[in-house]
Simulated scan of single mutants.
Amino acid sequence: MAKFDLLAQKALRREQPTRTELLEVLTSTDDDLLDAVAAAFRVRLRYFERRVKLNYLVNLKSGLCPEDCTYCSQRLGSSADILTYTWLSPEETRTAASCGIDAGASRVCLVASGRGPTDRDVGRLEPTIAEIKAEHPGVEVCACLGLLSEGQADRLREAGVDAYNHNLNTSAERYSDICTTHGFSDRVDTVRSATTAGLSPCSGLIAGLGETDDDIVDALFALRELDPDSVPVNFLIPFDGTPLAGRWDLTPQRCLRILVVARLVFPDAEVRLAGGREIHLRGLQTLALHVVNSIFLGDYLTSEGQPGQADLAMIRDAGFTVEGVGEPTLPDDRARVRTRHRGAGTTVPPNT
């Protein structure tokens, strides 16, 4: 019997792993890494077969944020070299969304910087969301607008939003180390508000913030209490001009172990490989597809991802298929879909 077979069997029965079992995965040796991935793959295969869901991110409003999250290039006081602008026009939003959908994305994530939307902000999005849904029937729209006020989740659902993303990011114990302008409980409350309103809850974490193995487990257990339908796993991009600049704590093997424990805690939820995958997993991205069943296509909020064609080729070459509303139609001249919401600003990781 392979080292982590019993953990796979528990996950296939939807039994939750213990802290000790998850720590055993996180502290395992590189010699055991393929056994851990194989255990997670058995679970992934049962619930999602060889399908990969593609998500496309549209940055509606960049920078100018009053929050002080230490990991974020859009934070208060950031000197990161990013584009800053207020809301994209409805036409720009629809065009950007269509680019991602044409490339195979079945979910569009509409993201805006800031503490949270005003009621006017929600109002400005309502017709745009309706037009995206009318133009692309079957495509999911996920909003990520920050902390929600009373009634806003209901308005977003009525406008056609399917899901709401608000990540817990790290453990409750460590949260004050990465942000002082709001608390861990504020994030929990927003996820619960979205769920109560009938929006599909999407909440995950960021690894590489200086957390311990116990912090990773605590964050996953806190997420488990919220019962999210999708769990994005991000890896810190240490932007120059932010407090975490130059922090390169992650290795490709460490990233894989974190993905494995996320899959074991969430056997039948959408586990999404999100920001930072290209620079941290590097050549092991393909192996990560045997654990996760969802990725972002192309770029992120203020950093570039792989070209869209490279993502699609990676999925195909690994023997997986794109789950979506149609076949990807990304031509060579749109291999990198761009709107004015793309930026840059991080140094190259050291060769360690």
Rank of each mutant, 00 (worst) to 15 (best):
Arg51Asn: 10
Thr212Lys: 00
Cys72Arg: 00
Lys53Arg: 10
Phe320Lys: 05
Leu110Ala: 13
Glu140Leu: 10
Leu12Trp: 02
Ala172His: 01
Cys109Ala: 09
Ala159Met: 09
Leu110Tyr: 02
Ala130Thr: 08
Cys72Lys: 01
Arg50Thr: 12
Glu131Gly: 01
Val291Asp: 10
Leu64Ile: 09
Ala207Pro: 02
Asp186Asn: 09
Ser73Leu: 02
Asp121Gln: 12
Phe296Ile: 10
Glu135Gly: 09
Val271Asn: 05
Ser113Asp: 06
Gly208Glu: 00
Glu173Ile: 07
Asp32Asn: 13
Gln253Ala: 15
Asn167Thr: 02
Glu91Pro: 03
Gly319Thr: 12
Leu26Thr: 06
Ala105Gln: 04
Gly77Ser: 09
Asp102Met: 15
Thr302Cys: 08
Glu21Gln: 13
Leu145Lys: 00
Leu281Val: 06
Thr95Phe: 12
Tyr164Ser: 10
Ile258Met: 10
Asp35Thr: 02
Leu148Tyr: 03
Ser89Trp: 06
Gln309Ser: 15
Phe221Ile: 02
Gly77Pro: 13
Thr242Cys: 01
Asp31Gln: 15
Ala274Pro: 01
Ala335Cys: 06
Leu330Arg: 12
Tyr164Gly: 09
Leu301Trp: 09
Arg50Ser: 12
Val260Asp: 06
Arg42Ala: 15
Asp5Ser: 14
Asp213His: 13
Arg107Lys: 11
Ser79Pro: 03
Thr242Leu: 00
Val325Glu: 15
Trp248Asn: 13
Arg14Ile: 07
Val261Ala: 08
Ile258Asn: 04
